[in-house]
């Protein structure tokens, strides 16, 4: 393996050294960097991003094309591009199959499954996002500082991460939501706390790697203060693998929220994918009569988490590879 890499390094050496006086351009034709990176991320990455953009856009714009409560029942001939209110029951029959205007069919109380899925995405995505922001900010900050300064702070933080990782995740989430309330906020916070240790550990490990590099030494020799080294030298390097992990983590948080919902401890207020799957998919007779009511939110969740994972993976691969591409 190492030999192969060595061979690769030898043959791939598109070296471009200049004479001390010759200011000739590097041999490689000047390809704008953004373009080449975009291309290297590949079609799969952009398909993933496209799907995520669609889901996020629909979640944001949902109020624009959603009818008032009760309006759908009152207007049987409404436009096929409008949505019934997600909490409107009996807008259609029970477990009706998909048809134009009722694209995802209806569930066992006659609610519009598409409307439920789009409105559910608002909470699911937000829970994933808030959770990972908490993990990113708290874990990242702790991890970078611990990895850079080492010493007692590192010992304390590493121990904290270990404890967080050892704590049974589900029990922590149940504890927090039971004690503080089954609201969107506390569910996000409990999932965010769970994200701190994985993100923090990665940030610490990456910081340790980059802090050893000579450019950090060079910055110190130039007289850079610690704050400058952390923000200007280390952060830009550490943030890429962290972002990749954040995308993966967001997927995990969405699934985790679904799991909590399935256990019946999701948001008491509002909808989410997990809650929707729970309501449509936990009774056998419903699943047999109209599996679409559960399959659509499951499929959308699946695709979204897949897209997040795939995008995160590609991001990491491309940026890791670029370092080695020398």
């Amino acid at each position: 393996m190492a030999e192969q890499m060595q061979a690769g390094a030898n043959i791939g050496a598109v070296t471009t050294d200049l004479g001390s006086n010759a200011l000739s351009p590097p041999d490689e034709s000047p390809i704008p960097e953004a373009k080449s990176v975009a291309r290297r991320l590949g079609l799969g990455f952009w398909l993933s991003v496209g799907w995520l953009a669609l889901v996020v856009l629909l979640a944001l714009l949902a109020p624009l094309f959603t009818l008032e409560r009760g309006e759908a029942r009152a207007n049987p001939d409404r436009s096929v591009f409008t949505l019934a209110h997600p909490e409107d029951t009996a807008v259609a029959g029970r477990l009706d199959s998909p048809e134009p205007g009722l694209w995802f069919g209806s569930d066992n109380t006659g609610r519009d499954v598409l409307s439920l899925t789009i409105w559910g995405s608002r909470i699911s995505l937000l829970v994933g996002f808030v959770a990972i922001v908490i993990g990113f900010v708290v874990g990242g900050t702790l991890g970078i500082i611990a990895g850079y300064f080492r010493g007692w702070f590192d010992t304390v933080v590493s121990f904290l991460f270990t404890i967080l990782l050892s704590f049974p995740a589900l029990i922590l989430a149940i504890l927090i939501t039971t004690l503080l309330g089954r609201t969107f906020l506390w569910i996000s916070v409990s999932l965010g706390i769970l994200a701190i240790a994985p993100v923090g550990r990665l940030a610490r490990a990456q910081t340790l790697v980059f802090a050893e590099r000579d450019f950090v030494m060079a910055a110190r020799i130039l007289g850079a203060k610690d704050s400058r080294i952390v923000l200007r030298e280390l952060l830009p390097n550490v943030v890429i693998p962290m972002s990749a992990l954040a995308l993966l983590g967001m997927g995990i948080a969405i699934v985790a929220e679904g799991t909590l919902a399935f256990l019946g401890i999701s948001t008491a207020d509002g909808l989410s994918w997990g809650k929707q799957i729970f309501e449509s998919g936990s009774r056998r007779e419903h699943l047999e009569a109209g599996p679409h009511a559960a399959l659509f939110p499951i499929g959308v969740t699946f695709l979204t988490v897949l897209a997040l994972n795939f995008a995160g993976d590609r991001l990491r691969e491309v940026f890791d590879a670029k370092e080695l591409a020398f």
Partner: peptide, 8 residues
């Protein structure tokens, strides 16, 4: 930096 050779 990665767009330059070792000497550069």
């Amino acid at each position: 930096a990665y767009q330059f050779s070792g000497g550069q």
